[in-house]
Design a binder for these strands. Structure first.
Lengths: 335, 335
DNA sequence: TTGTAAGCGTTATCAG
DNA sequence: CTGATAACGCTTACAA
């Protein structure tokens, strides 16, 4: 079953069939109808390989992420795939893990599949040693296909970024705590990605602006470490260090803070306010429920895929979109 | 840059280059080395489209799921993609939603991409009205490529299933509660999938075996409805119906049960035991932490991909693998 | 508006 | 063991 069968059935040449399939204008209406009927009747589907050979595209987008089982990433992947499929683009998913050496490897792999674009989901893909040309793997890739970064920033002619203003979000949340009179705020974070750094600097900037001595304690934990967060806070507690609020770069870490407070009879939010990040379902699981920063994954993904579709259609798109996140107040903060 | 360039550089014909690329035995070692050197030097990568055209395969597996943002599914997708990529298979991800009409549509779509196999992740793909030939869309697909069902059961020559014994897991967990003296167990569940039905019947069978009048209350909620679960329990409570344990088909629903108990000053586990399902991270977020049934997603996925790779290599594989789940005891049950 | 025919870059079948 | 050469199924100048 191929294009010849259709052409025979419709009594036209394969060129005409091809034109109909590709929505080419110059086909007489009557001919078009005849061909469409033949296609339908035979249940014909063009061979994607042959099509790809001719067009050098397969309507497929490569989605790279470090770990699609992470709640935040899983949501992002879901929305990306969903929005792209609305426009008849398929998604090839590839998880790289967190080893930067693998970023280049998987980028090459996905490019070798001749995807039409690559989406990097998560700021860990942006490495921080410019002198080592660490990010060249992305720049190189951008010479082949347009590149889209979700929560990553990189300049480049063929590179398009959508980022959350993590700095601002954390800054404002910290300011809120400071206005509540909190002076001993612990910041828990994980990783050293661009996003992590922005969040952290948002926090320290807020303290500095408020003239609070920047002797806050903070540490570096894994992204899923509820218990590491809890025991870190316990170690501070055991040292009798004052602590009246906790901010976290991930909801998981904030969950650890809730557990810590509960175990030590510390009242939330009276004695300890807690703010998480991502506004994931975890924020609704704890008691009291977590106040958390929501960066609107769905909208971010929509913006990114809109840009992607524009670029693929040959239109212009902004190289840099900055979105703001919102604080969702629940029960671990005052008010 | 194509196979001709390589052949020229190596001073051989394209046929020989092709043989080297495909690991064909009948190439002299010296020739092979020469070709490999040329490939390396030129950084040549075969064109996947042309390759696909010739071989009619692209080393790609289609993964269908209803919603990849669901924690359980996200984990499954992660492991599937990961294990397949270890064997140089790429994954096309496609989320169908929960409308059965779309199952056929997306199946067709993914088949039109000429994937080498299709994996259906989740039991909702198995519909329950045999008289309507509801599942023919899978059977039809199995005529084109091998089909793998994760947590779904369907007979068929080219269909391979890996399922958890949900019935047994829930049955045993219920028995445990009964042994603890619980007589008023509420079962919360979501959906009407095969898996849901098995869980439910495991529950009712246990009650029957124990001679407990099967006047348990249970209800039908969305899979992510923490609050629906909570308010459903509240409605029972308001009616003064006795209740000394809650079992749930999803951790989210069990989280709702914890919230309910907390709000009404009901002691866990003394007055109310609670058992969730999936042993997700949610089980670790509540206080007390949830006892939950773990069905070992990673191993299930490993078994499935092992089978898949075998079948694609032309080897035999079992059409039906049944795995057992384990109860992970935490703080919402006695002992 | 339509058809002819030349690619696209492989793999696979023959001969040699 | 190696090389011509015919598929593979489609797109797209170029002609008509």
């Amino acid at each position: 079953m191929n294009i010849y069968d259709v052409s025979q059935k419709a009594g036209v040449s394969i060129a005409t069939v091809s034109r109909v399939i590709n929505g080419n204008r110059s086909v007489a209406d009557s001919t078009r109808r005849r061909v469409e009927a033949a296609i339908k009747e035979l249940g014909y589907e063009p061979n994607v390989f042959a099509r790809g050979l001719g067009l050098n595209t397969m309507q497929t987008i490569g989605i790279l992420c470090n770990d699609s089982s992470d709640i935040y990433i899983a949501n992002a992947v879901y929305y990306l795939q969903h929005f792209l499929s609305e426009h008849h683009y398929d998604s090839i998913l590839c998880c790289t893990g967190n080893n930067p050496d693998d970023f280049r490897k998987y980028t090459k792999m996905i490019l070798s599949k001749r995807v039409d674009a690559v989406i990097y989901t998560g700021s860990q893909f942006i490495l921080n040693h410019p002198e080592d040309h660490d990010n060249n793997y992305i720049v190189d890739a951008s010479k082949e296909v347009p590149i889209f970064l979700l929560n990553g920033m990189l300049e480049g002619e063929n590179i398009y970024c959508v980022v959350n203003d993590d700095h601002l979000a954390v800054h404002d949340a910290a300011m809120k705590l400071i206005r509540h009179g909190r002076r001993h705020i612990v910041y828990l974070y994980s990783g050293t990605t661009l996003s992590s750094q922005n969040k952290l600097s948002g926090f320290t900037d807020a303290l500095n602006e408020a003239g609070i001595p920047n002797r806050i304690a903070y540490t570096h934990l894994g992204p899923k470490d509820i218990y590491a967060a809890k025991s870190y806070l316990e170690s501070l507690y055991d040292q009798n260090l004052p602590m009246d609020a906790v901010m976290a770069s991930e909801d998981t870490l904030a969950v650890g803070a809730v557990k810590f407070a509960e175990e030590h009879g510390i009242r939330i939010p009276e004695d300890l306010e807690i703010i998480g990040y991502n506004n994931s379902i975890l924020a609704e699981c704890t008691e009291p429920e977590l106040t958390s920063i929501d960066n609107h994954v769905e909208k971010v993904c929509r913006t990114l895929t809109d840009n992607c579709l524009k670029v693929l259609a040959g239109e212009d798109a902004p190289h840099k979109v900055i979105r703001t996140a919102d604080l969702i107040s629940r029960e671990t903060t005052v008010n």
